[in-house]
Amino acid sequence: MKDKFEKFVQENREEFDVFEPRQELWQQICQQLPPPAAKKEAKVISINFGERASFRADFMFMRVAAAVLLLLGCGLTLLLTKQNTPANAIAATEQVRLNNIAPELAEVEAYYTSQINSKKGQLSAYNLKVLGLDEEHDIEQELARLDRNYAELKKQLYTTPNTDKVMDAMIRNLQLRIMVLNRQLEVLEKIEKLQKTETSEPGQNETQII
Protein backbone atom coordinates (compact mmCIF):
# COMPACT_ATOMS: atom_id res chain seq x y z
CA MET A 1 0.00 0.00 0.00
CA LYS A 2 1.41 3.29 -1.03
CA ASP A 3 0.46 6.44 0.80
CA LYS A 4 0.13 9.88 -0.70
CA PHE A 5 3.70 10.83 -0.03
CA GLU A 6 5.07 7.69 -1.64
CA LYS A 7 2.87 8.28 -4.65
CA PHE A 8 4.11 11.84 -4.89
CA VAL A 9 7.72 10.64 -4.88
CA GLN A 10 7.00 7.97 -7.45
CA GLU A 11 5.26 10.38 -9.79
CA ASN A 12 8.17 12.78 -9.63
CA ARG A 13 10.88 10.15 -9.48
CA GLU A 14 12.89 11.55 -12.40
CA GLU A 15 13.23 14.94 -10.78
CA PHE A 16 15.04 13.44 -7.84
CA ASP A 17 18.04 12.62 -10.01
CA VAL A 18 19.67 16.04 -10.03
CA PHE A 19 23.33 15.18 -9.77
CA GLU A 20 25.75 14.30 -12.48
CA PRO A 21 29.29 12.98 -12.24
CA ARG A 22 32.15 14.96 -13.76
CA GLN A 23 32.80 14.40 -17.45
CA GLU A 24 36.33 13.25 -16.70
CA LEU A 25 35.17 10.35 -14.60
CA TRP A 26 34.85 8.09 -17.60
CA GLN A 27 38.51 8.64 -18.42
CA GLN A 28 39.45 7.43 -14.96
CA ILE A 29 37.19 4.39 -15.26
CA CYS A 30 38.46 3.63 -18.72
CA GLN A 31 42.07 3.55 -17.59
CA GLN A 32 41.34 0.91 -15.01
CA LEU A 33 39.42 -1.39 -17.29
CA PRO A 34 41.24 -4.45 -18.53
CA PRO A 35 42.34 -3.99 -22.15
CA PRO A 36 40.17 -5.71 -24.76
CA ALA A 37 40.65 -9.45 -24.70
CA ALA A 38 44.26 -9.73 -25.84
CA LYS A 39 44.64 -11.41 -29.17
CA LYS A 40 45.68 -14.96 -28.67
CA GLU A 41 49.32 -15.46 -29.37
CA ALA A 42 50.22 -16.86 -32.71
CA LYS A 43 49.78 -20.58 -32.57
CA VAL A 44 52.35 -22.78 -34.13
CA ILE A 45 51.22 -25.93 -35.78
CA SER A 46 53.87 -28.47 -36.40
CA ILE A 47 53.21 -31.34 -38.67
CA ASN A 48 55.62 -34.21 -38.58
CA PHE A 49 56.27 -36.23 -41.66
CA GLY A 50 57.92 -39.26 -40.21
CA GLU A 51 61.11 -38.44 -38.36
CA ARG A 52 63.13 -36.72 -41.00
CA ALA A 53 61.03 -33.90 -42.29
CA SER A 54 59.15 -31.61 -40.05
CA PHE A 55 57.05 -28.85 -41.35
CA ARG A 56 56.17 -25.86 -39.27
CA ALA A 57 53.47 -23.50 -40.29
CA ASP A 58 53.30 -20.29 -38.40
CA PHE A 59 49.73 -19.16 -37.97
CA MET A 60 50.69 -15.52 -38.31
CA PHE A 61 52.36 -16.26 -41.62
CA MET A 62 49.29 -18.17 -42.76
CA ARG A 63 47.12 -15.21 -41.90
CA VAL A 64 49.27 -12.82 -43.89
CA ALA A 65 49.34 -15.21 -46.81
CA ALA A 66 45.56 -15.57 -46.70
CA ALA A 67 45.15 -11.80 -46.61
CA VAL A 68 47.44 -11.32 -49.60
CA LEU A 69 45.61 -14.00 -51.57
CA LEU A 70 42.27 -12.45 -50.71
CA LEU A 71 43.44 -9.01 -51.79
CA LEU A 72 44.78 -10.37 -55.05
CA GLY A 73 41.53 -12.17 -55.69
CA CYS A 74 39.47 -9.07 -54.98
CA GLY A 75 41.67 -6.93 -57.21
CA LEU A 76 41.45 -9.38 -60.06
CA THR A 77 37.68 -9.70 -59.83
CA LEU A 78 37.32 -5.95 -59.73
CA LEU A 79 39.53 -5.54 -62.77
CA LEU A 80 37.64 -8.19 -64.72
CA THR A 81 34.20 -6.82 -63.91
CA LYS A 82 35.34 -3.33 -64.82
CA GLN A 83 36.54 -4.52 -68.18
CA ASN A 84 33.35 -6.40 -68.80
CA THR A 85 31.11 -3.49 -68.06
CA PRO A 86 30.59 -1.11 -70.98
CA ALA A 87 31.26 2.44 -69.91
CA ASN A 88 27.85 3.90 -70.52
CA ALA A 89 25.67 0.87 -69.91
CA ILE A 90 22.87 1.18 -67.46
CA ALA A 91 24.22 -0.72 -64.55
CA ALA A 92 23.13 -4.32 -64.62
CA THR A 93 25.20 -5.35 -61.66
CA GLU A 94 22.64 -4.71 -58.97
CA GLN A 95 19.90 -6.52 -60.77
CA VAL A 96 19.60 -9.18 -58.10
CA ARG A 97 18.79 -6.76 -55.32
CA LEU A 98 16.65 -4.63 -57.53
CA ASN A 99 14.55 -7.63 -58.40
CA ASN A 100 13.28 -7.60 -54.85
CA ILE A 101 12.48 -3.91 -54.76
CA ALA A 102 11.10 -3.38 -58.22
CA PRO A 103 10.71 -6.68 -60.06
CA GLU A 104 9.37 -5.02 -63.21
CA LEU A 105 12.40 -2.77 -63.52
CA ALA A 106 14.67 -5.42 -65.01
CA GLU A 107 12.26 -5.95 -67.90
CA VAL A 108 11.74 -2.25 -68.46
CA GLU A 109 15.45 -1.57 -68.38
CA ALA A 110 16.20 -4.40 -70.78
CA TYR A 111 13.59 -3.13 -73.24
CA TYR A 112 14.68 0.49 -73.23
CA THR A 113 18.36 -0.33 -73.16
CA SER A 114 18.01 -2.37 -76.33
CA GLN A 115 16.04 0.47 -77.93
CA ILE A 116 18.60 3.05 -76.90
CA ASN A 117 21.48 0.91 -78.10
CA SER A 118 19.91 0.32 -81.49
CA LYS A 119 19.29 4.05 -81.90
CA LYS A 120 22.85 4.72 -80.92
CA GLY A 121 23.97 2.16 -83.47
CA GLN A 122 21.94 3.89 -86.15
CA LEU A 123 23.38 7.21 -85.11
CA SER A 124 26.95 6.05 -85.26
CA ALA A 125 26.32 4.86 -88.83
CA TYR A 126 26.23 8.50 -89.82
CA ASN A 127 29.53 10.10 -90.27
CA LEU A 128 28.90 13.17 -88.23
CA LYS A 129 32.05 14.94 -89.23
CA VAL A 130 31.25 14.56 -92.88
CA LEU A 131 27.80 15.93 -92.19
CA GLY A 132 29.50 18.84 -90.54
CA LEU A 133 27.68 18.50 -87.27
CA ASP A 134 28.83 20.00 -84.08
CA GLU A 135 25.75 19.03 -82.22
CA GLU A 136 27.06 15.61 -81.36
CA HIS A 137 28.83 17.10 -78.39
CA ASP A 138 25.63 18.55 -76.96
CA ILE A 139 23.86 15.26 -77.31
CA GLU A 140 26.59 13.41 -75.52
CA GLN A 141 26.31 15.89 -72.71
CA GLU A 142 22.57 15.58 -72.54
CA LEU A 143 22.79 11.79 -72.48
CA ALA A 144 25.42 11.91 -69.78
CA ARG A 145 23.21 14.18 -67.71
CA LEU A 146 20.31 11.78 -68.09
CA ASP A 147 22.59 8.93 -67.14
CA ARG A 148 23.62 10.65 -63.91
CA ASN A 149 20.03 11.47 -63.19
CA TYR A 150 19.11 7.85 -63.73
CA ALA A 151 21.82 6.58 -61.41
CA GLU A 152 20.59 8.98 -58.76
CA LEU A 153 17.03 7.71 -59.13
CA LYS A 154 18.21 4.16 -58.92
CA LYS A 155 19.94 4.90 -55.64
CA GLN A 156 16.73 6.42 -54.34
CA LEU A 157 14.93 3.25 -55.22
CA TYR A 158 16.74 1.47 -52.39
CA THR A 159 15.68 3.95 -49.77
CA THR A 160 12.37 5.41 -50.84
CA PRO A 161 9.11 3.95 -49.60
CA ASN A 162 7.38 5.13 -52.76
CA THR A 163 9.00 2.97 -55.43
CA ASP A 164 6.24 3.64 -57.97
CA LYS A 165 7.05 7.33 -58.14
CA VAL A 166 10.74 6.73 -58.60
CA MET A 167 10.06 4.02 -61.14
CA ASP A 168 7.90 6.44 -63.16
CA ALA A 169 10.69 8.98 -63.12
CA MET A 170 13.18 6.34 -64.24
CA ILE A 171 11.00 5.24 -67.12
CA ARG A 172 10.48 8.86 -68.16
CA ASN A 173 14.24 9.27 -68.08
CA LEU A 174 14.69 6.31 -70.43
CA GLN A 175 11.95 7.57 -72.75
CA LEU A 176 13.58 10.96 -72.82
CA ARG A 177 16.82 9.43 -74.02
CA ILE A 178 15.03 7.69 -76.84
CA MET A 179 13.35 10.97 -77.73
CA VAL A 180 16.66 12.77 -77.81
CA LEU A 181 18.17 10.08 -79.99
CA ASN A 182 15.13 10.01 -82.28
CA ARG A 183 15.27 13.73 -82.81
CA GLN A 184 18.91 13.54 -83.62
CA LEU A 185 18.24 10.74 -86.09
CA GLU A 186 15.51 12.77 -87.76
CA VAL A 187 17.81 15.73 -88.11
CA LEU A 188 20.52 13.57 -89.59
CA GLU A 189 18.14 11.92 -92.02
CA LYS A 190 17.00 15.31 -93.27
CA ILE A 191 20.52 16.52 -93.70
CA GLU A 192 21.42 13.37 -95.55
CA LYS A 193 18.51 13.76 -97.94
CA LEU A 194 19.46 17.34 -98.50
CA GLN A 195 23.02 16.38 -99.29
CA LYS A 196 21.88 13.65 -101.68
CA THR A 197 19.78 16.09 -103.64
CA GLU A 198 22.68 18.48 -103.49
CA THR A 199 25.05 16.05 -105.17
CA SER A 200 22.54 14.84 -107.75
CA GLU A 201 21.31 18.27 -108.69
CA PRO A 202 24.10 20.68 -108.08
CA GLY A 203 22.67 23.34 -110.37
CA GLN A 204 19.47 23.59 -108.51
CA ASN A 205 21.36 23.82 -105.31
CA GLU A 206 23.47 26.67 -106.53
CA THR A 207 20.46 28.67 -107.43
CA GLN A 208 19.14 28.00 -103.96
CA ILE A 209 22.24 29.32 -102.39
CA ILE A 210 22.24 32.39 -104.56
Partner: peptide, 17 residues
Protein backbone atom coordinates in the same frame (compact mmCIF):
# COMPACT_ATOMS: atom_id res chain seq x y z
CA UNK B 1 34.43 -8.71 -25.52
CA UNK B 2 36.08 -5.63 -24.06
CA UNK B 3 34.77 -3.24 -26.70
CA UNK B 4 35.62 0.21 -25.34
CA UNK B 5 32.98 2.03 -27.29
CA UNK B 6 30.25 -0.30 -26.09
CA UNK B 7 31.46 0.19 -22.53
CA UNK B 8 31.20 3.93 -22.94
CA UNK B 9 27.73 3.59 -24.42
CA UNK B 10 26.60 1.60 -21.43
CA UNK B 11 28.26 4.05 -19.07
CA UNK B 12 26.56 7.02 -20.69
CA UNK B 13 23.23 5.25 -20.46
CA UNK B 14 23.45 4.54 -16.75
CA UNK B 15 26.02 6.92 -15.25
CA UNK B 16 23.61 9.65 -14.21
CA UNK B 17 21.00 7.39 -12.62
Amino acid sequence: NGDNRAQYELYKLYAKA
